[in-house]
Design a binder for these strands. Sequence first.
DNA 1: TAGATACTGAACCACATGGTTCAGTATACG
DNA 2: CGTATACTGAACCATGTGGTTCAGTATCTA
Lengths: 120, 120
Amino acid sequence: MVQYTTACLDASFAALSDATRRGVLEQLGRADASITDLAEKFHMTLTGMKKHVGVLERAGLVITEKVGRVRTCKLGLRALEEEAGWIDRYRQLWDARFDELDKVVEELKRKEKVDGRNKS
Amino acid sequence: MVQYTTACLDASFAALSDATRRGVLEQLGRADASITDLAEKFHMTLTGMKKHVGVLERAGLVITEKVGRVRTCKLGLRALEEEAGWIDRYRQLWDARFDELDKVVEELKRKEKVDGRNKS
DNA sequence: TAGATACTGAACCACATGGTTCAGTATACG
DNA sequence: CGTATACTGAACCATGTGGTTCAGTATCTA
C-alpha cells in the first residue's frame, strides 16, 4: 500500500509554500526559539508569527511547549519523509516519461528519413 | 549562491498542496491529456480542471498547447529539482539538529549521575 | 451549413491565508 | 503590590482557492 495520507501531504506542502515558514523551519534547525524571537527575526507582529507557527504545528513540522509565559518552538519529529518520498517518486515518473518521449521522437525521425527516401 | 528563487518555491509547493493537482501530475507522467480527459478522470467540471492546470502551469510544472479545439497538457521541463533540493537541505539540518539534541541529553544524563552521587 | 465538441471567461460562493490592531490574561521581576 | 513581558483571541481586511454555473467562441464532422 503506497497510499500516502493525502491530507498530511496537503498540509505540509501548504506549510512549505510560504517563504516565512520555510525560514522559520531553517531557523529552528539552528536553535529552538520563542514566538517573540521568531517575530523579531522575521519583522512581524507576535500574532502574525503565532499564526505561521500554528500552520507548521498543524502540519506536524514543529512542536511547541509553553513554560511560564514563554512558548518555545522546536522542530517536530517528522523530517519531511513523506514529502521527499512523493517528490522522488514523481521525479522517477518524470524521467521515465521523458525517456519515453525521446523514443517517440527517435521513431519519428526514423520514419521521416524513410518518407524522404520515398519522395526522392 | 544557494539563494533559491523563493517565489518559485512558493508557487510550486502551493501547487503540490492539493491532492487533485498531485494526481494530475502523476497522470501526465503516464500520458499527455486534454483538459476534458483530466476533468473526467477527477470528476470535475472543465472550468474547475482548467484552473488546476493553470496553477500547475504558472508553477512551471506543466506546459500546455492548444491545437484545434483541444488543449493538450504535458509535464513541464522542471522535475522539482529545487523543491527536492530544499527538502534535502532541510533534512540534513534536521538530522544535525537532532544529533545535537542527543548530545545535550547525554550531557544531562552524565550530570544527573554526578548529582545522584553527590546526594547519596 | 447545422449541430456537436472543447474550451474559455465572467461571475458567484464559502472559506482559507497573511497580515494587522486592540484588548485582554498570565507570569516574572523589583 | 505594581509594572513590564509574552503570549492569546477576536475582529477586520484584501486577496487567493476550489469549486460551481452560465453564456459564450472556435473548431470539427456529417
